[in-house]
């Protein structure tokens, strides 16, 4: 590992990791006026313009599939005069591989993409770049996401978001689907990135270059569009209704509107009088070691 002090610190060199939603179910049902081919042409133009902003800039593309995620592009490795070709070639390979992994023949509605996976890959890649090489660029993540959130990935996604927050990596999100994404809203809010859901999808390139091309240093001078903010009010797990006061499981932090004997999420039994707790009960609220 290169000692930190020997690195070249700059405020205008960016490392941009783009997470590209490659969910076939989403793209084939998407009729918002942005077919996948159009989307790709906007994306390629955007990535090119990022690389033009500074010749030391680095762009990494990660495809977010339904069954897997994969690195599809790295500007530091690809031949400079065949950028789009390399990206599209890799993307095609990725789609074929992802299809091989799919088990079911048909699904009800749109399956969600593996956002948690691609976020983790992006975080790992950024750490690798920061810890090696002679340059210390300003890293950021951009999520181009269209498919609906996968509630099952909640814990993994939140963990990625918090680890991005810890390493001070902003997660920008551009939602190209019909719905807002609660995940990405949180991600951008917590990490201080930009959240945007373009209205004019045929002008995607304009959104990308206006909002998301700004490097981190310039963001302090430029007034970018701010999202309204995230509503952190809690709603109970049992009825999904917003509550002001409630009961929280001390083990898994589930919220309930009335006291329960047992947590429905993690199965912990709650503080009954000491006598009723059996000695074999493993769910101790605070291990005292």
């Amino acid at each position: 590992m290169t000692p930190v002090s020997r690195k070249l610190y700059t405020d205008d060199v960016s490392l941009l990791v783009v997470l590209i939603d490659t969910n076939p179910y989403f793209w084939s049902t998407n009729n918002s006026g942005l077919p996948y081919s159009k989307f790709l042409s906007h994306l390629v133009a955007f990535l090119n313009s990022i690389l033009l902003l500074n010749q030391l800039n680095q762009v990494v593309g990660i495809a977010t599939g339904v069954n897997s995620c994969g690195y599809i592009y790295d500007s530091s490795l690809a031949p400079p005069n065949k950028r789009a070709e390399t990206l599209l070639q890799k993307l095609e390979e990725f789609v074929i591989k992802d299809e091989e992994l799919s088990a079911e023949d048909s699904v009800d509605g749109i399956k969600s993409s593996l956002l948690s996976g691609s976020l983790s890959m992006a975080l790992c890649y950024i750490q690798r770049v920061l810890r090696s090489g002679s340059l210390h660029p300003q890293p950021r993540i951009l999520c181009l996401h269209g498919s609906p959130d996968g509630p099952g990935q909640y814990v993994a996604v939140m963990n990625s978001i918090f680890s991005a927050q810890r390493s001070m990596l902003p997660i920008d999100s551009c939602v190209i689907g019909a719905q807002h994404s609660a995940f990405l809203q949180q991600a951008s809010h917590i990490t201080g990135g930009i959240y945007s859901k373009p209205q004019q999808l045929d002008g995607l390139f304009q959104y990308l270059s206006t909002l998301f091309a700004t490097d981190l240093h310039s963001r302090s001078f430029i007034q970018l569009h701010k999202s309204v903010g995230v509503d952190f009010r809690a709603s109970c797990f049992c009825h999904k209704s917003t509550i002001d006061m409630g009961y929280i499981c001390s083990v898994c932090l589930s919220i309930f509107c009335k006291p329960h004997k047992k947590c429905s999420t993690c199965g912990s039994t709650f503080g009954q009088p000491q006598a009723t707790v059996s000695p074999t009960n493993l769910k101790r609220k605070a291990p005292d070691s």
Binding site: D149, P151, G152, Q153, Y154, V155, M158, Q179, H180, A182, Q185, Q186, V228, G229, V230, D231, F232, R233, A234, S235, C236, F237, K240, T242, C252, S254, I255, S264, T265, C266, G267
Partner: peptide, 19 residues
């Protein structure tokens, strides 16, 4: 955790409403 979806649901309702 039996079903992490609960966490999502308890927040998403509000988050989407805000917008």
């Amino acid at each position: 955790i039996k079903d992490p979806r609960d966490y999502f649901d308890s927040q998403q309702a509000n988050a989407i409403k805000t917008l």
